[in-house]
Computed example of a mutant assay.
Amino acid sequence: MGKENLDFDALHLAVKHKKFAPVYVFYGNEEFLIEESIKTVVENAIDDGLREFNFDTVYGNEIDIQGLLSLLLLLPVMSQKRVVVMRNSEKFLNKLSRSKKEKDATLFINYLKKPNPDTILIIVLNEVDSEKEIYKKLFELAEVVELKAPYDWQIPSWIARRVKERGMLPPWKGKEITNEACKLLQAYVGNSLREIDNEITKLFIFTGEKKIIDVEDIKQAVGMSRNFTVFDLQRSIGERNLQLSITIVEKMLQAGEFPPVILTMLTRYFSTLWKLYELRKTEKDPKKLANSLQLSPYHIREYLNQLDKFKESEIKNAFKYLIEADELIKTSPIDSRIVLTQMVYKIVAQNQN
């Protein structure tokens, strides 16, 4: 499986230009992208009115090699291409591996070597058994598309691309979204691409002819679909996103979060950031930094990205502002919401005016 795989964007670009592979393998942990990829291939390969005659879905636990080949060798009806999607394909491949009829696996491999150029076969895999020879051959001979969920920090740019792409079509032509709105939409909805896409649809309808979707549109049209946590707050502070950070503080307090808990967790966050600042003076390898701080590879990337947004003096100032807020909450009659909002403002906005 040494061949370089395609991702969703590369597949999308190729099929938009009518460049199809005769056999695809779609696999990964993002079911939404798998379904979107199937839809993209079908819509670009077969005209809408002809799909009933040229599109078939089969299931690996129900079909045998003879039944599959009979579908693959059919001629298109008034179309350049046919598309056959096989779901639960690992069931089919495992049957071939266990079959006492070696010719079944041979027939399948021979088809992969010389596929029907008029038919596009899409093999959807939920699991990959890379030790089995049949999988090795499939990954060697097919066009493999890995469809994995974006990392947390990639979601805002995914939202922006999705809005821009959908904004290329009437009646929404020219519609885009601001960076801050992308971040707020993620904060409200989470990282489920399907849920985000549903909210984008709502936003398009809500904003109508308005070309730019902004933060206010998100607040009015989307609403809250998950509770904020202190981890969302520290991430938004780490990204120096002032508006989102203040929104999160207010929502957390409205939900009954205890202010000392927020202060304790933020102090712990900046302590980790400070340790990373010191360690990075002598160590640049992210893996070793992660081990030293007992962080996952994903989280060390996030912390390193956030560390680049703060100077040494600004991290020191953050501790000062946290201590000030703690003392005010304990000793003064000032409302905790005002204290925490001012603290967040001082941490995020310092030296940015």
Rank of each mutant, 00 (worst) to 15 (best):
residue 143 E to I: 09
residue 117 P to R: 11
residue 309 K to P: 00
residue 10 A to I: 07
residue 76 P to Q: 10
residue 33 L to Y: 11
residue 59 Y to M: 08
residue 121 L to D: 07
residue 175 K to Q: 07
residue 249 V to F: 01
residue 30 E to H: 13
residue 9 D to G: 09
residue 147 L to M: 08
residue 133 E to G: 06
residue 52 E to I: 03
residue 155 I to G: 07
residue 32 F to M: 12
residue 92 F to A: 06
residue 105 A to R: 07
residue 37 S to C: 00
residue 22 P to V: 04
residue 348 V to D: 10
residue 81 K to V: 06
residue 328 L to R: 02
residue 241 N to C: 09
residue 111 Y to V: 09
residue 174 G to W: 13
residue 96 L to S: 03
residue 147 L to Q: 02
residue 285 D to E: 15
residue 272 T to C: 01
residue 336 S to D: 06
residue 227 N to G: 07
residue 8 F to T: 05
residue 276 L to C: 10
residue 152 D to S: 13
residue 22 P to C: 07
residue 292 S to N: 15
residue 162 R to Q: 14
residue 41 V to R: 02
residue 256 G to R: 02
residue 108 F to S: 02
residue 24 Y to S: 13
residue 47 D to W: 12
residue 310 F to L: 05
residue 334 I to S: 04
residue 273 L to W: 09
residue 220 Q to A: 15
residue 289 L to C: 12
residue 52 E to C: 05
residue 104 D to V: 02
residue 297 P to W: 13
residue 303 Y to C: 03
residue 164 K to I: 11
residue 128 V to C: 11
residue 177 I to P: 06
residue 237 I to P: 09
residue 344 V to E: 06
residue 283 E to S: 02
residue 233 L to A: 11
residue 31 E to F: 04
residue 262 I to V: 10
residue 344 V to A: 08
residue 100 K to E: 13
residue 118 D to Q: 15
residue 296 S to F: 13
residue 35 E to S: 15
residue 184 L to I: 04
residue 61 N to D: 15
residue 33 L to D: 11
residue 178 T to Y: 06
residue 150 P to H: 02
residue 113 K to I: 03
residue 117 P to E: 14
